[in-house]
C-alpha cells in the first residue's frame, strides 16, 4: 500500500513550469552502434516566454524542437506542456515550418480555413470564416486571401503560415528557422510583426534560428547548443531588454554587443566547427 507514493505518480504540481523538457536524449541505432543526437537536454519555459535556440547546423536543434512538437519521441526523458506529456503532434503545439508547408492547391484563405476547421469543427462556418479573415488581416494579407501560394512571395507565404499557426490558438508556437529563406528587409519586417503578434497573443514561442541578431531582438532567453553529435545545452543567455523592443534602440545599447560577442564567442571560438 505504501508503494503508491512512488515518485512517478506525483500529482501534477501547480507550480510546474508551463513547458518542461526533462532529460531528453535522442539516439538512433546504426550499424556502427548508436548515434546520439541529443544528450540529456533539460529546459523549462514560462508561459508566454520567447525562447530562441541557436547552434551550428547538425547540432540537433530541429530534433529538439521535434520532441516538443511531437514529430519525434525522445529516446529517454520527456516533454510536458502544462504537466501533460507530449506523445504526438497536435494543434496545441503548432509549427511554422521552414518551407512554409502551405498546400499549393489551396488559396491563402483555404489553407488557414483547413486548420481552423480541423481544430474548431464545432464552430459555425461564419465563425470560422471570421477567424480566418481576422488572422489574414493580422499579417496584412487581406488582399491576398484568394491567391494560391504559387502567386505569393516567400515573405507572404511565411505570413500565411504564421497566420495559420496562430489561428488555431496554440499554447506553444514552434518555429523552425522561419525567416531563413527571406531577404534581409522582409526578414526584419516579419520579425517585428512576429513580436507584435506574440505580445497580443501571449503564446509561448520556441524558435530555431541561425541569426544571432534575430535571436537577440526577439527572445527572452537564448539557448545555445553545443555541437553534435550528443549535443547538450551549452549555455542559456538572458536577454533583459525591455519590451516592446525597438530595434534601433536595442542596437545602441552597449550591453547588446556584450551579449552578441558572448554568443559569437560561444559559437565561433568555444564550439567552432572544425
Amino acid at each position: 500500500m505504501q508503494t503508491l507514493a512512488s515518485p512517478t505518480t506525483m500529482p501534477p504540481a501547480m507550480q510546474e513550469p508551463f513547458l518542461v523538457i526533462e532529460n531528453v536524449s535522442k539516439s538512433y541505432s546504426t550499424p556502427n552502434g548508436s548515434y546520439v543526437v541529443l544528450d540529456g537536454i533539460d529546459l523549462t519555459a514560462k508561459e508566454g516566454e520567447f525562447i530562441c535556440v541557436i547552434g551550428h547546423s547538425g547540432c540537433g536543434k530541429t530534433t529538439l524542437l521535434d520532441t516538443v512538437s511531437g514529430f519525434r519521441t525522445p529516446t529517454t526523458g520527456e516533454v510536458r506542456v502544462q504537466g501533460k506529456r507530449v506523445t504526438r503532434p497536435g494543434p496545441d503545439r503548432m509549427v511554422v515550418f521552414q518551407n512554409y508547408a502551405l498546400l499549393p492547391w489551396k488559396t491563402a484563405f483555404e489553407n488557414i480555413y483547413l486548420a481552423v476547421h480541423a481544430v474548431f469543427p464545432q464552430k459555425s462556418k461564419k465563425e470560422k470564416t471570421e477567424i480566418v479573415k481576422e488572422h489574414l488581416a493580422m499579417v496584412g494579407l487581406e488582399e491576398a486571401a484568394n491567391k494560391k501560394p504559387g502567386q505569393l512571395s516567400g515573405g507572404m507565404k511565411q505570413r500565411v503560415s504564421i497566420a495559420r499557426a496562430l489561428s488555431i490558438r496554440p499554447q506553444v508556437l514552434i518555429l523552425d528557422e522561419p525567416f531563413g529563406a527571406l531577404d534581409a528587409i522582409t526578414k526584419e519586417e516579419l520579425q517585428e510583426e512576429l513580436l507584435q503578434i506574440w505580445r497580443n497573443h501571449q503564446v509561448t514561442v520556441m524558435m530555431i534560428t541561425h541569426d544571432i541578431d534575430e535571436a537577440l531582438f526577439l527572445s527572452d532567453r537564448i539557448v545555445m547548443m553545443t555541437n553534435g553529435p550528443a549535443a547538450k545545452i551549452g549555455e542559456i543567455m538572458d536577454i533583459p531588454f525591455a519590451r516592446p523592443r525597438n530595434r534601433a534602440q536595442i542596437m545602441e545599447d552597449p550591453y547588446y554587443y556584450t551579449l552578441r560577442n558572448h554568443a559569437l564567442d560561444f559559437l565561433f571560438s568555444r564550439y567552432a566547427l572544425h
Binding site: F71, P89, A115
Partner: peptide
C-alpha cells in the same frame, strides 16, 4: 513530408 506534417499537427480526420 511537409504536407503529411501539416496533417499530423492539425490531426486531420
Amino acid at each position: 513530408q511537409d504536407y503529411k506534417n501539416v496533417a499530423k499537427v492539425l490531426r486531420l480526420s
